[in-house]
Design a binder for these strands. Sequence first.
DNA 1: TGGCATATCCCCTAAAAAGGGGATTTTTCT
DNA 2: AGAAAAATCCCCTTTTTAGGGGATATGCCA
Lengths: 208, 208
Amino acid sequence: MITVFIIDDHPMIVAGLRSLLDGMEDVNVAGSCGNAIDSLPLLKKTAVDLVFMDINLPDISGIELCKKVRKEFPAMKVMAISTFSDRGYITRMIDNGASGYLIKSASAEEIKGAIHTVMSGGLYLSLSMEQLLLNPNTTAPGIIPVLTRREKEILGLIAEGLTNNQIAGRLYISPLTVDSHRKNLLTKFGVNNTAMLVRFAVENRLVE
Amino acid sequence: MITVFIIDDHPMIVAGLRSLLDGMEDVNVAGSCGNAIDSLPLLKKTAVDLVFMDINLPDISGIELCKKVRKEFPAMKVMAISTFSDRGYITRMIDNGASGYLIKSASAEEIKGAIHTVMSGGLYLSLSMEQLLLNPNTTAPGIIPVLTRREKEILGLIAEGLTNNQIAGRLYISPLTVDSHRKNLLTKFGVNNTAMLVRFAVENRLVE
DNA sequence: TGGCATATCCCCTAAAAAGGGGATTTTTCT
DNA sequence: AGAAAAATCCCCTTTTTAGGGGATATGCCA
């Protein structure tokens, strides 16, 4: 019997996941929670084997929460859930201790398979063929590059329409520095102007 | 008693919505379907009052399906469901006959309220305060401007990262003409650089 | 057939970004 | 403590965009 817990702020997803999991005879849903901070005390109370965790939570990011959970409960497995098959997020979640990554369009069978893969010590990645075929952007050979904190920050400001000078003013750094970061972003993304950069960033939910 | 039908390709959402709707005493879930084309014959068989419809379906867009449903079954109400509170989509769905727009993070109470608003002839828009506060961009007073055919075409090419010269070459027109269109786009959108233009366009699904 | 929106083309200047270098300090991790 | 990564800053040139302005053709519709 596998005891699972759900952390997601979308009631529809929680109800759906719970309903799909309830239909599995060897899975027991211990509870659910709509945010990160309240979830940790709840996890202490129950002996949970596996946590389903949305990567976009209202308070702290899934990545942070994953790190915390793995630190406090090393035996507990983490299955990240997300709307998108976002390569950048996937790798970052895995790096921070997640054992699986499931997209919200997963079927009951896929979820079942994912649970068993993860519980037997494996790594499950939900990159189904449909996603690969239907979303060429998110899954294109262009892997989402690893950005530094500063680069992400500046990418966000670029996408908001600020110029190098405005960004420099906002961050109290030289416009030349902003320009360097901007050039690094272009290089990392393999694009050659702002339009492509912003489009890529918005489509891959790196901004917003 | 209100008979509803769900069209969504995400099993988790279908299960979740079904579970939340089953908990309402005056609602009866007649069935569900994972794509647009198979849904129409199913709707013919049952007397459905209200259809919950994802705006992103694998085959045809929610907007097209909404149009079709309203044409074939004029008495049937359509409730659009989406992950985002995207103004562009909302208006287009409403224009094509939808009576409501619900985001997937809606609570059971919100869904209940939406159903009753719609069934009593009203228009329900899920633009909760959190969304308004968290996503100032998608909900800004900025109405989507009316673009001409040429402007839409050029906007698409700008978002693909082409320069004025490249666009001119592609369309066999002068770069100066492209520049004029580009300036008109900036004016119509009320923005002052390409970054904002592309972001707005991508977020409002004007490109892709 | 006259008006109106659209599309086309042109002028000018200033600002911003792209593309190419290189160098130094500060964090971060081991 | 020392290496590696990140962040900072600077030089140069060319291309592209932004922000003004205006003008002519063309298709559509009432």
